[in-house]
Write a protein that binds this DNA or RNA. Sequence first.
DNA 1: AATATTTATATGTATATACAAATAAGTCAA
DNA 2: TTGACTTATTTGTATATACATATAAATATT
Lengths: 234, 234
Amino acid sequence: MNKGRLSSFQMIKDDLLEKIKAGHWLPGETIPGEESLAVEYGCSRMTVNRAIRELASEGIVERRRKAGTRVALQSGRSAKINISIVRKEIEARGATYRYVLLENEERFPPEGVRAKLSMKEKEKALHVRCLHFADETPYQYEDRWINLTRVPSAAQQSFEDTNPNEWLIQEEPFLEAEHVFSAQLADEQMADLLNVQIGAALFVIERRTWQGADTITAVKLSHPGDSYRLVSRG
Amino acid sequence: MNKGRLSSFQMIKDDLLEKIKAGHWLPGETIPGEESLAVEYGCSRMTVNRAIRELASEGIVERRRKAGTRVALQSGRSAKINISIVRKEIEARGATYRYVLLENEERFPPEGVRAKLSMKEKEKALHVRCLHFADETPYQYEDRWINLTRVPSAAQQSFEDTNPNEWLIQEEPFLEAEHVFSAQLADEQMADLLNVQIGAALFVIERRTWQGADTITAVKLSHPGDSYRLVSRG
DNA sequence: AATATTTATATGTATATACAAATAAGTCAA
DNA sequence: TTGACTTATTTGTATATACATATAAATATT
């Protein structure tokens, strides 16, 4: 009954989480039912319901009607990574951001890209390549293809001032994406662009972004591997 | 009023999300208040409240008392990565899993590791090193330190049959973790272990897991970069 | 004009009640 | 023993009501 400053469902949620983490109920074990917890906490079932429902949505517990609520078994672990806008990423490190456009041309995409963008043959896509600097050190090389059928307005963009990354997020804010992370070696071109030795390790992120059935853009982001660290907590 | 099969708050949530994605309300714009949406959908305010509250917890909208609810400005994207048990990862590729233990010794950890495990000086930790094979090809090299103060039972484990990865998940199921992903080059030792050229690209995951104040284990997982792909959707 | 105070309003939470839906467990029939 | 059916229990959702709280906007004060 709202004894502290936090709302009551939040207190209950915290208390349950603490007990679960402390091993009061082990993974797989069933925790008491809503009714009984409501009595224990001196509140209504709805309040307990909300607390547990939120724990369930966070993957801490699993619920099933009639069977009750049990502590989730962690079969693997999931890490949530935030890939923010490059500029912000760089600025967050306290470095100065600079951006250089290398190419902005309508081209017939190579086979692989055409497949990724699910485009018809003999259709042009926009090829944008650019470099993002942190304090004048190359930080990320961006090689992007944009589906012009889906985003025709991209053709009018110069991308001189606004980088394609930020422009697209502005233009198409709610997209689904798939990321592939890998380690690759720098070839001559990459070494030149990122100012590293040929054969240096690169941390590569490939991202495909779509909405509904339409793929909007496919991009390959390459970073010098010794300086790039993708961190995730949880 | 529950017109379809889905519950009403879910329908409202879906409908709002669809409208937001379609650009009915642009990022930064305020959507109608709960009261007014309740009238529109012919339901109670509480039902609308739940729909919008969930959208807020998913980062789609932002709410402020008196000011109302507005469509969130998308500042970046977040990707959820699932790092499952190595064995399962390998088996999911249709390959046969094999595991070889290389070392299992109590040792004084080097400075860096001692700091990570937040251990006192002159305290031993368990050093376990092993290799995970996919179809007889080296897939992952695991270099792990386990805090024996926190997990004393690890000292009794041979890790001959069960690998430390799975054993720890079993033993200490509820953990918090931090991951760092990076690209590195194979040195002589790595090249030998993973059967790659010296100077090959490695995809490296460093993970620290803890519970409360106690760090339980710190592990470095190295994979041949050209064969390892970490995929995430969302 | 700048600052402090008040007011109005949208969201946030708590609770009681009612019914829906899934399903574990128990019962009965073949 | 097996499978079909029933029932009892637990969670899931909807709603009305009441009050709490943050804060934008309006008003008063200096």
